[in-house]
Design a protein around this nucleic acid. Structure first.
Lengths: 125, 125
DNA sequence: TAGAAACCTGACATTAACGTCAGAGGCAGG
DNA sequence: CCTGCCTCTGACGTTAATGTCAGGTTTCTA
């Protein structure tokens, strides 16, 4: 498939796909005229990239990890990187949970204010 | 306390603190000569700001929410915003959990490779 | 009362993952 | 062949939260 179709099937912009290639995260066959052509596996590849991005992992790190993400095999160095990223993801999870608790506390307090029939303006601090 | 001490106590740079003030997230008394002076509550305030940043909430949104984060009171509009941010935090949590699972799968596979005594180079995809 | 250390404002630099535009070539239908 | 849509490269724009530097004032310390 060509780049437009890949973009549509993954929900990622054409620009982003070219950027991935630029970063070495995604490769493409080229037609005689220079147009990119992708196999079906590219769809999964792009989705994986997106997922790692969503975890706050940089393209440089993804580049190191990606080949092994596909096969499940890794060098010791890559394995160490993976553990490192796992830690940071766990840390992010903890922080997010804490933030969620705080948000819930605030929301509960604010909601109670309204339910009590006493809508007060937001006071200045 | 002055800005340097606040920076040290919160682990945030002086530049960042001035930026928070610029964004309206943090206020300071000014001495005769114009130097910022903070009360002890500023420490908590800064930590809260950092936590919200960590949740991917923009400074503009924080600005809307912050007064009410302190008092637990909110206008209906702010309450709606809070719910919106709650949703996005929950979504982030889900995505992170999914990513963690994927990472664990890969790590498990890679670790097994080593434990089996067959360290293989990372193959090309 | 120096001189160092901390502070001030203002402004330009940085980073990442794209968006957007320009100018040009490629491809399928009518 | 023409039209319209897709694609190409290259390059500059964007955003957010700072970093960094310059040039000047204030505050602490010896």
């Amino acid at each position: 498939m060509r780049i437009g179709e890949l973009a549509e099937r993954t929900g990622v912009s054409v620009r982003a796909l070219r950027y991935y290639e630029e970063q070495g995260l995604l490769t493409a066959e080229r037609s005689e005229s220079g147009q990119r052509h992708y196999g079906d596996t590219a769809v999964d590849r792009v989705r994986m990239i997106q997922q790692l991005y969503a975890a706050g992992i940089s393209s440089a790190s993804i580049l190191e990890m990606l080949p092994c993400m596909v096969t499940g095999l890794a060098t010791p160095e890559v394995l160490a990187k993976l553990h490192g990223h796992r830690s940071s993801v766990v840390k992010q999870l903890d922080e997010l949970r804490e933030t969620l608790l705080r948000l819930d506390t605030v929301i509960a307090g604010a909601s109670a204010t309204f339910e009590s029939g006493v809508p007060k303006p937001c006071p200045h601090v």
